[in-house]
């Protein structure tokens, strides 16, 4: 076990410094495809989080038994088993949400963020560390899914937590908030371009905070002049 790696650092990496969605830019396909509403984002985020935790813990447990030559197929097998179990559980308990998320639940297998954590972290570290890593990475991903989903939902249809009953049953009915009354809808936010633009803006916001923290107090003056290329007289 690598002693220099503290739990605090792992947590901070997963949630912010090395966030799956904002820094590693992994798992963009589900990220962009399902975040048209906050509830969809939450549903997929939780499923991914669960998969990540199971796969990281299992991979960490078997890391000394698996030969390096066959580790990738074995990891995939572990991940696929976890996803299959989650998929079956979702279709049993959250059938409506399962229908909405559709193909993106089985596709969690191919989310490279999960294999990435298994290969880069869990196969080299102990169970406790791997569990914390999976939790923080998963929560970081979940947070972005929910934030992006909420932003697109508010802009796109003026509501928040629409169709919350898919996830929380009857209790969820009152969770649906209408942020803007009589909203005509802004289709772009719901359509795929809205996902790309939204993610781009989120990355920009993160970079802005990071750069402000890094160069506090340093101001680089920018000087620009207009030059006339065609009139080259002195």
């Amino acid at each position: 076990m690598n002693n220099s790696m503290s739990y605090r650092k792992i947590t901070r990496d997963g949630l912010w410094n090395n966030n799956i969605a904002l820094v590693q830019l992994l798992g963009l396909c589900p990220l962009l495809a399902v975040t048209s509403t906050a509830i969809n984002g939450l549903g997929l985020g939780l499923a991914t989080l669960l998969t990540l935790v199971i796969s990281n813990v299992v991979v960490s447990l078997i890391r000394n038994q698996v030969h390096p030559e066959v580790r990738i197929p074995v990891f995939i097998l572990v991940i696929a088993s976890a996803v299959t179990a989650i998929e079956l559980a979702m279709s049993a308990f959250f059938y409506d949400l399962f229908k909405v998320l559709g193909i993106f639940i089985p596709l969690i297998v191919t989310n490279c963020a999960i294999l990435g954590r298994a290969e880069a972290f869990a196969s080299k570290n102990g169970v406790a560390l791997s569990f914390v890593d999976a939790m923080s990475m998963g929560l970081g991903f979940l947070a972005i899914l929910v934030v992006l989903g909420s932003a697109r939902e508010i802009l796109g249809q003026g509501t928040l937590f629409d169709q919350a009953h898919l996830m929380f049953g009857g209790v969820g009915q009152w969770m649906t908030l209408t942020i803007i009354d009589d909203y005509r809808g802004f289709l772009l936010a719901i359509l795929p371009p809205g996902a790309f633009i939204g993610l781009g803006l989120l990355i920009a916001i993160k970079n802005y905070f990071d750069s402000r923290k890094k160069c506090k107090g340093i101001k680089v003056p920018i000087e620009l002049r207009q030059v006339n290329v065609s009139s080259s007289s002195a």
Partner: peptide, 11 residues
Amino acid sequence: SPQTHLDNNLT
């Protein structure tokens, strides 16, 4: 020629 003015700028 290089000194010839051309009233041609962006504006």
